[in-house]
Computed example of a mutant assay.
Amino acid sequence: MESLREAIEFIGGPAALWILAAMYFGSVILERIWAIRGNPDYDNKDALNSIGLNLMSSVINLVIGILVPLALYVLVYDNLRLFGAIPLWAAIPVAFIAHEFAYYWDHRLNHRVGLFWAFHAIHHSSNEFNHSTAARGFFLDGQLKRLFAVTPAFIGIDPVLYIAVSVCTNAFGIWNHASYVPRLGWVDRVLMTPKMHKIHHANQPQYIDRNYGQVTLLFDRMFASTAYLGEEPNPGLVKPVHDYNPLTAQFAGLKQLKERMDHADRWQDKLAYLWRPPEWSHDGVCRSDCPKYAGLTAA
Rank of each mutant, 00 (worst) to 15 (best):
D289C: 10
Y73D: 03
H242S: 04
S57Y: 02
L17N: 07
S57K: 02
A135D: 04
A95T: 09
E279K: 00
D46T: 12
A90G: 05
L274S: 07
M196S: 14
H107G: 14
N130S: 10
P233K: 00
Y293N: 08
H263L: 09
V167E: 05
I66T: 10
V63D: 08
A224L: 06
A16K: 10
W105C: 08
K198Q: 15
H131T: 04
I174M: 02
L75R: 03
F251M: 08
A294E: 15
H197A: 14
V190S: 11
D265L: 05
L140Y: 14
I157A: 04
V241Y: 07
L217G: 13
M56L: 07
L62K: 02
Q204W: 04
Y77C: 03
Y273C: 03
S179I: 02
R5M: 11
R210I: 02
V285R: 06
P205H: 03
Y293H: 11
V28Y: 13
V150T: 15
H124K: 02
V28I: 14
F101Y: 08
P233R: 00
T226D: 15
A153I: 12
H99E: 12
M56G: 06
P205K: 05
C286T: 13
S132Y: 01
G13L: 00
H201D: 10
Y162H: 00
L115Y: 01
A90H: 03
N211Q: 07
M56A: 13
R37T: 13
V68S: 11
E6G: 13
L237S: 00
D188C: 03
V59E: 01
A153G: 09
I174V: 11
N203C: 11
D243M: 02
N203E: 10
A164K: 03
A134D: 05
D269R: 01
L82F: 10
D141C: 02
K145T: 12
L80Y: 09
L237E: 00
I155M: 15
C290A: 07
D188R: 06
A298R: 09
K239A: 15
I86W: 11
V28H: 07
A149L: 15
R112F: 05
E259G: 09
Y42I: 08
F96S: 04
Y244V: 07
P291K: 02
N49M: 15
